[in-house]
């Protein structure tokens, strides 16, 4: 994996807060998340189910549904803050400069429209080209994601495709307008392992080739380890730790990250006991005061009743913890 060159980031998210104002109360689905992604770089956004990963992605795209809205923070895309932009401006960015691939390939394609309709409309929405040219662009995109006989595929309906094939179509659609940023929301979870590997590889190659920045959302650390340059770990809507992938995986500082890594089976720890984070994810409706991970944390004490500050250490590493780990992973787990 090449070291990321210090370029101006494609995207910089600063202290993003996306809240849902429901009848039962305010759900802080995203509550203080900051990260950045540079061109050609992959950021892994990791966290367990319900930690706010998808909502972070939708916030960047401007697709948060009511009763949710962005309650604070900035989303700087190529230096411009997207939060105050009107819907018409955001729409112009969606699908052209910022694209997204969704979690479930079985649901993302409209069952009653042909693939060519669904792909060309993405081109025609942003570019002033003829239909024939748009079709040509779509065909090239399908070939790039490894779909044979694209003409036949274009004339088909989604139900004639397997899950892996549909996700390739979704990926090809995302790349159609050569976006600067792609948000991939667990695009491989619904697929089997071999297809998963292929798709990971293809997406990564496309990003490197085109200099597209990518946010890869997943709950699977193993996927991120082989793919991302940076990692941002979320817990209950908050960023708890982030930094370069190797640094974080080798010396995780936040107890939650340690727990996550410990619960992934690993070859060099074969036979060793698998670690399990005790307890359950807290409900976002009534989060306890202070650190949200407190109740499940082996290191928690009275100091954790206060909202933990974010420590910024070297190499762009950040940790939101009062008692961060300071030793290599091997020592912690032994």
């Amino acid at each position: 994996m090449s070291a990321p060159t210090p370029e101006a980031p494609t995207l910089e998210v600063r202290d993003l807060k996306t809240h849902f104002f429901t009848r039962e109360g305010v759900i802080k689905a995203v509550d203080g998340v900051s990260f950045q992604v540079a061109p050609g770089e992959v950021l892994g956004l990791v966290g367990e189910s319900g930690s706010g990963k998808s909502i972070t992605g939708f916030s960047i795209l401007g697709l948060v549904d009511a009763p949710g809205r962005i309650a604070g923070g900035q989303i700087l895309f190529q230096g411009r803050d997207l939060v105050p932009l009107p819907e018409s401006e955001r729409r112009k960015l969606r699908g052209s400069k910022i694209a997204m691939i969704f979690q479930d390939p079985m649901m993302t394609l409209n069952p009653v429209l042909r693939i060519d309709t669904q792909m060309t409309e993405a081109v025609l929405a942003h570019r002033d080209v003829s239909k024939a040219r748009a079709l040509e662009i779509c065909r090239e995109a399908l070939v790039k994601v490894g779909i044979a006989s694209p003409d036949e595929r274009l004339a088909s309906y989604p139900h004639q495709f397997s899950g892996g094939m549909r996700q390739r179509v979704a990926i090809a659609t995302a790349f159609l307008n050569e976006p600067e940023l792609i948000i991939a929301d667990e695009p491989t979870t619904a697929l089997d392992v071999t297809i998963q590997g292929q798709i990971l590889h293809e997406a990564q190659a496309l990003c490197r080739e085109t200099g597209t920045a990518m946010i890869w959302i997943t709950h699977d650390l193993a996927v991120v380890a082989g793919l991302a340059d940076h990692i941002c770990v979320m817990y209950a809507g908050r960023m708890v730790e982030q930094g370069p992938i190797d640094a974080v995986l080798d010396r995780p500082a936040h107890p939650y990250t340690v727990g996550l890594i410990g619960s992934v089976p690993s070859r060099n720890r074969r036979g060793g006991r698998l670690f399990q984070i005790p307890g359950m994810t807290p409900s976002l409706l009534n989060l306890p005061e202070g650190c949200a991970f407190r109740s499940r944390c082996p290191r928690a004490d009275i100091a954790c009743l206060e909202e933990p500050p974010v420590h910024t250490a070297t190499e762009g590493r950040q940790v939101r913890c009062v008692h961060p780990h300071d030793e290599p992973l091997e020592e912690m787990l032994s």
């Binding site: 694209a99 969704f102 394609l109 942003h126 659609t173």
Partner: peptide
């Protein structure tokens, strides 16, 4: 989801 995806396409 396909409506959301359509919106994501701009």
């Amino acid at each position: 989801d396909y409506v959301k995806f359509a919106r994501a396409k701009g």
